[in-house]
Design a protein around this nucleic acid. Structure first.
Lengths: 210, 210, 210, 210
DNA sequence: CATGAATGAGTCTTCATTCAT
DNA sequence: GATGAATGAAGACTCATTCAT
């Protein structure tokens, strides 16, 4: 029953090129910026005619949407793996989980600086709609982090009076700062050190204990 | 007979228009984005000929540089007032100072959402040079915050083993998150709540105390 | 089945349009002058979009370079035909050759007054670089004429003490004058008369013989 | 009776500035070309406001007309001095006179290369009207030279069958060539050599005498 | 009378998009 | 289905000219 698959070889090739276009567009946008990138640049780098581009995407705006959707999916997938909020039941386990998440983030963003450059610095400037999408993303991330914190509060390993929403945004802000810092100092050691500092602040705060 | 001032009326008017152009450019850039804004738009909104624009600024890139320089100056000035790092000698005083700085930030960014929108979301996407300038700004802010922390460590009201640099970036990240959040929820109460949550994380962390 | 040619029909059409653009640009430049001619004028006269122009030439400066290169090539080709310097071995033959060259010049420049108007009056005023190119052209022409004279001196039908270089420039100056005169009086008879006068001066000078 | 003069001091100053503007405009036009020169350039070099320019000349086109009129007057004046066509009555005297005229030309154009650059290379390209003026100038020069030749024919020291008009254009062409050559090789010796070569061609032609 | 601030017509040039081949 | 030639809207920028001070 090999013919059972409704996806023909031609169809698969089409999907392949579609993917290549998205990736190449990301390359270009990250390197030269969205506005400085022409459709012709993307097509030329791929070695296809720039008319072909329009057989796969509506217009320039369309492609950038897909690029971002893809990137977000990638990031979320990498983070979600083995990191469900309710897989944790003690502070020690949560510490381990946050460390793992931190490593994952470092892996994702440290492995390809274009990712941070594009998502954090370039995307929001594309147009008003994309700006809202970026803010939506931040909101979604806050909700996700809040879920982790809620779980901790419920199980008692996080402070009972924790402002879950606010703390979630605060924590995500620290992550954001770390990713931004990686753009200037991508050395893994620096990233690890910053990650540790963030976790220290996160768990213990900065105040001296009496 | 106030002719004592060496600045002629014409000169003053020129400076005034120059300032108006910068402000109007900021309006336009913040509303429609840098790339979507034409010099003609700025001039039209001001009611001047677009040729006039070029009497005051070299080109489109020139104006955005001035806009940003001005904004940064404004923000820095608002924060620097009465908030010297070494004006503090105890944790209680530092708490007060951070609250004051938080209020100042809320005042600045809450008072005009365009500020955050432009500086945090738009600016970095203008071009590569501006992106670097934004990263420079983050670096400078980190150094500034680090100075505050260093002072606290020296005086003993902050943890002796604090990773000053890393914590500074972490704290600034939380501030960044708060400013970004204000774009979606500009209500002063929300801002105050988020500010409090950040300070709570900052001083005490999120972990439950045994 | 003339598919043997490796040049596709599309390619040929492209070359054709390229040529048409050069010719139309020449038309415009000669009629209204380089500076008074807009790219839009050229495109409109050709019935193409002005964006199309830029698919064939880099910019306005680029096209004028090609126009001139083409014109010079045309002129040189017309003169070079059957007029090698060393194809002559006596004064009588040289007289015949100069007459033939004169006729050729009259044919070229008399046939299309725009040629002289553009090359002699317009080109040098385009910009500094083009001015040098025009002077280069005069230098080259002087060298060419000098080659003819040298040959005559060697074979003894021209004065042994002839200042070859200087005389060459002098002769070319007379030609230049004739071409310029044709702009005001393009009648073939006038041209023929002037051509004869030049040859008379050239061979015999103006002084009465004792 | 010093008040008898109708020209007030203010009036004289005005005339002076007017002259300075013409000269400075010539400087600019000759150096950077007519089209590349802005009214502001001329005014700035003179240290006057560019609005002032328009108190002395109608517009940009107006000034270039005056510049050329002035230059032509200068050239003509320099040549006319002691060189009346009928001040000569023999070939020897005519030779002397042409040598003197040659020297004068060398003095004028050799002394200031901008003169040739502007009059011969730049002027005709300004616009159609100026092109006609340049051709008018060539025509006038031809008539002038023809007057000299006519005189020589009448007195018998030039060939009786001389084509006066044609020869005049031919001779002027040689002069033109010499002036153009001076732009590339301004050395007085070169000029003198070329001048001699021209006179040799003019009087004796290039053909070997049996 | 000198000034230079203001103006906007005019030009080059780019690039996303369409469509005939 | 791929291609790239054609297109023209759009935008940055210049500069001759005017005119209020």
């Amino acid at each position: 029953m090999t013919t059972g698959t409704p996806v023909s070889r031609a169809e698969r090739k089409k999907q392949e090129l579609r993917r290549e276009i998205i990736e190449t567009a990301f390359d270009c946008f990250a390197e030269r910026g969205y506005h400085a990138t022409g459709i012709a640049d993307i097509a030329a780098r791929l070695g296809i005619g720039h008319g072909t581009f329009y057989r796969y995407f509506q217009n320039k705006r369309d492609i950038v949407d897909h690029v971002i959707t893809d990137l977000v999916r990638t990031v979320v997938a990498a983070l979600a793996a083995d990191n469900a909020p309710d897989a944790v039941s003690s502070l020690a386990e949560y510490r381990t989980q946050t460390a793992r998440i931190g490593d994952a983030l470092a892996g994702i963003f440290g492995g390809d600086p274009r990712l941070a450059r594009f998502l954090l610095l370039e995307a929001a400037g594309i147009d008003a709609e994309m700006r809202e999408r970026v803010l939506d993303f931040y909101d979604g991330a806050a909700q996700l982090t809040a879920a982790y914190l809620s779980h901790g509060v419920e199980l008692g390993y996080l402070r009972a009076d924790l402002d879950v929403e606010g703390s979630a945004r605060a924590i995500n802000g620290m992550i954001l700062a770390a990713v931004l810092a990686s753009l200037r100092d991508p050395a893994p050691e620096s990233q690890a050190r910053l990650s540790a500092a963030i976790r220290r602040v996160m768990y213990d705060g900065i105040a001296a204990r009496d």
